[in-house]
Design a protein around this nucleic acid. Sequence first.
DNA 1: ACAGACTTGGAGCGACCACTCAAAATCCGT
DNA 2: ACGGATTTTGAGTGGTCGCTCCAAGTCTGT
Lengths: 197, 197
Amino acid sequence: MARYRVGIETRERILDATRQVLGDQGLESATLKAITDRAGVGAGSFYNLFESKEAAIWEVLAEAITAVDPDPDGHGSETVDDLVTAFVAFVTGETATLARIHLQLAGMALTAPDVAAPIARSHARRVDRFQAAMRRHDPELDQATAVAHAELLLGALTGLAIRNAMDPDFDLAAHAAALPRHPGDRASSPLAGRTGS
Amino acid sequence: MARYRVGIETRERILDATRQVLGDQGLESATLKAITDRAGVGAGSFYNLFESKEAAIWEVLAEAITAVDPDPDGHGSETVDDLVTAFVAFVTGETATLARIHLQLAGMALTAPDVAAPIARSHARRVDRFQAAMRRHDPELDQATAVAHAELLLGALTGLAIRNAMDPDFDLAAHAAALPRHPGDRASSPLAGRTGS
DNA sequence: ACAGACTTGGAGCGACCACTCAAAATCCGT
DNA sequence: ACGGATTTTGAGTGGTCGCTCCAAGTCTGT
């Protein structure tokens, strides 16, 4: 399937359309017609390139699960700040549509068992990455506390991302910058330095 | 509609069924058949009591939006700890099914505009309540910092609730107890005192 | 330029969707 | 215990769902 150039391009157009439909209208509205209309493609073309509607959706969901935690550029040297900045970029940059899908994953995980496992794995990986960065910053920090603060930060980042998605005027970068990076840090006011590091 | 006692009881059975379907299988699987089968009721009975499928679902969603923030028992004297404990009770107690629905709301808010506004309102009310409790604890605390920490705590609580819903062995109470209640508090290890206050 | 492989659109399929309706059963003030 | 109001059932409606199929069109190695 998809051996000629046109086929590969069509496949990408369909995945793009699936991303947009999932991001803008949600899983419930992601019908075959919605996807193929947006891709400008007939049903037959779709099924020439994908096993089923579920297959295309799953491919995009897997992308949304993975994309929030891209391969470790400086896996052993990244700081908590790097990780927070990367998340802000994920939500506000080119991957914004994927980010909107990412924010719907938690709800899906509760009701779709086969999507829950990879989400849990991805979450665990992310917690570990944050936790390691915290302990690099403060080698005295015990692991359990670092993990707890990592979960705290990730939960807070998700909350801010949701507000950002709902309110176009929300200044995600400023609020994210104000989060306490390490256990014992004080949350500061997001009104202060706008793009400060 | 629903003037006789049987009618009122049937209405409640249908709402119960809707809660269960939404909580267990999600909005996508909440078909009329799924709801009426679980309620043990014919389609005609349903439409004798509800305008539409959407009306029943909306009624339950409104309940899930509201129930997380019940009317202020001691509105002017509650502590952050009270609020955290209340949330743990909401997730693990009799309202567990409503809590599962509540956790799906964020995703819905992104794709269903009419559900977004009440969710945003409810969230703002909750942030305000947490923030007020923090400033009662430390009158020196400026509002912007208190609000930021309130958002942090709420995001973290939601994250923990999702983990709790996905993993039946997760000790939500212990993890919630370890969260930093006030700006500058250190997250502690959830392995320590299990049900300590 | 040919020919076999691939891609395309869209009519059509059975299944399921939300919803209607009228006749039968039940309720409850009198 | 009567009788009008309410409730209940389930077959039926039109519409949409995911998906199949195939004739026609396009691609690409030769």
